[in-house]
C-alpha cells in the first residue's frame, strides 16, 4: 500500500517536471537583452543523406567558420552505421580534429539565441520522438524571431526549417539541452563559462598547431585573466613555441592570482632554468614545494625540477 503511494508521488513529480519543459520560452520572448530578430543567412547548407544528420550538421557548422569540409569527409569520423547515428562526444572530437574549438554552451534557450546574435551558429541535439521512443537528431540553429516566437534551423533536408520556440525547447530539452559552438582559435563563445572554455581548450590543444594553441589561450586569458587552467595553458603553449619571456609572464600571472598553485611555480622554475637563471629557478621551485600541500604527484614533479636545477648548477660551477 505504502509502495503504491510512493509510486504515485513519483509519477506526479515526473509530470510536474514535464510540464515545466517548455519554460524558458517566456523568458526569452520578454528578454530586453536580445534583439527581436537575428539570422545568419550566409550559413552554408548540406542536406543530409539517410540518417546522417550528424555529419551534415557538423559540416554546416565548420563551413560557417570557413573550415572547408564536406559531410562525406566527416561521415567516417562521426557516423556509426550500426547505430544509424553519431555520438555526441565524437561530434566534438571531429570538430577539434578539423581545427575548430568545440565548446559546450549552457543548456538554456537564451544561450543559443545569444550565440546566434554573436554570429555563431549552434549545433543542437534534439529528440524529435518521445523520451520512450527516441528519434535523435542533430541540427544547426541559424536564426530566430521573438515576435513570432520561432527559430530557424539547417535541419535534415530543410535549408530553413521553421520551428516554434516551445516545440524546439521541448525537443531539445530531451537531449538535456545539448548544444555546442565550433569556433576558430582566437574566437570565444558569447555565453560559455570559463570552465567550459578551459575544458574545450585542453581537448583542442592535443591536435592544434603551436600558433593556434597560443592564439586560442591568449584570447581566453584576455577574457578571464585569473583563470588558473587558462593561464597554465597560455604559459605551456608559449613554452612549447620557445617564447620563454611570454611563458614566464603567464606563469607569474597564474601565481599572482593563485598563490597556492604549485604547478605554476614548477613550470615557472623550468622556464627560468631555460633562461639560465638557476638561482631564481631554485627559489621559485622551493616556494612551490612550500604550497604543494598533499598533492603527491606535483610534489614529485617539483622535486624532479629541483634535481634538474641542481644538476645545472653543479655543471656550471665547475
Amino acid at each position: 500500500m505504502k509502495a503504491s503511494v510512493y509510486r504515485i508521488c513519483i509519477l506526479a513529480f515526473l509530470c510536474l517536471l514535464n510540464a515545466c519543459a517548455a519554460n524558458g520560452v517566456r523568458e526569452v520572448t520578454q528578454s530586453k537583452q536580445l534583439p527581436r530578430q537575428a539570422e545568419l543567412t550566409n550559413t552554408p547548407f548540406f542536406p543530409q543523406e539517410l540518417y546522417q544528420c550528424g555529419p551534415a550538421a557538423l559540416a554546416t557548422a565548420l563551413n560557417a567558420v570557413d573550415i572547408q569540409v564536406t559531410p562525406e569527409q566527416l561521415t567516417p569520423e562521426v557516423y556509426i552505421p550500426s547505430r544509424q547515428g553519431s555520438l555526441q562526444i565524437e561530434m566534438l572530437a571531429a570538430a577539434r580534429r578539423h581545427g575548430a574549438i568545440a565548446v559546450m554552451i549552457p543548456p538554456k534557450l537564451e544561450s543559443v539565441l545569444q550565440e546566434v546574435v554573436a554570429g555563431n551558429v549552434v549545433v543542437v541535439m534534439q529528440n524529435l520522438g518521445f523520451s520512450w521512443a527516441p528519434s535523435w537528431h542533430y541540427a544547426v540553429v541559424v536564426g530566430f524571431d521573438l515576435n513570432r516566437e520561432l527559430l530557424w534551423l539547417r535541419s535534415g533536408t530543410f535549408k530553413r526549417f521553421e520551428m516554434s520556440l516551445s516545440a524546439f525547447q521541448r525537443t531539445w530539452a530531451r537531449s538535456e539541452s545539448w548544444a555546442f559552438v565550433a569556433l576558430p582559435p582566437g574566437k570565444l563563445p558569447a555565453t560559455a563559462m570559463a570552465d567550459d572554455v578551459a575544458k574545450a581548450l585542453v581537448a583542442f590543444e592535443k591536435h592544434a598547431t603551436t600558433s593556434a594553441r597560443t592564439i586560442a589561450y591568449q584570447s581566453a586569458v584576455e577574457r578571464w585573466p585569473t583563470h588558473l587552467v587558462l593561464l597554465m595553458g597560455l604559459g605551456n603553449s608559449a613554452y612549447k613555441a620557445g617564447d620563454m619571456p611570454a611563458a614566464a609572464r603567464a606563469f607569474q600571472q597564474a601565481i599572482a592570482a593563485h598563490p597556492d598553485a604549485a604547478p605554476a611555480y614548477n613550470n615557472l622554475a623550468n622556464v627560468l632554468l631555460v633562461q639560465k637563471q638557476a638561482q631564481q629557478a631554485n627559489n621559485i621551485a622551493e616556494k612551490g614545494l612550500a604550497v604543494v600541500g598533499n598533492d603527491e604527484k606535483v610534489r614529485q614533479q617539483l622535486l624532479q625540477t629541483l634535481a634538474e636545477i641542481n644538476d645545472y648548477q653543479n655543471q656550471h660551477s665547475q
Binding site: D295, Q301, Q304, E308
Partner: peptide, 16 residues
C-alpha cells in the same frame, strides 16, 4: 621532450 613541465591537462583535472 619536457621532463619536468606540468601539463595543462593535469592542472585542469585537479582543478575540476
Amino acid at each position: 621532450v619536457q621532463a619536468a613541465m606540468i601539463s595543462t591537462e593535469q592542472v585542469a583535472e585537479s582543478a575540476i
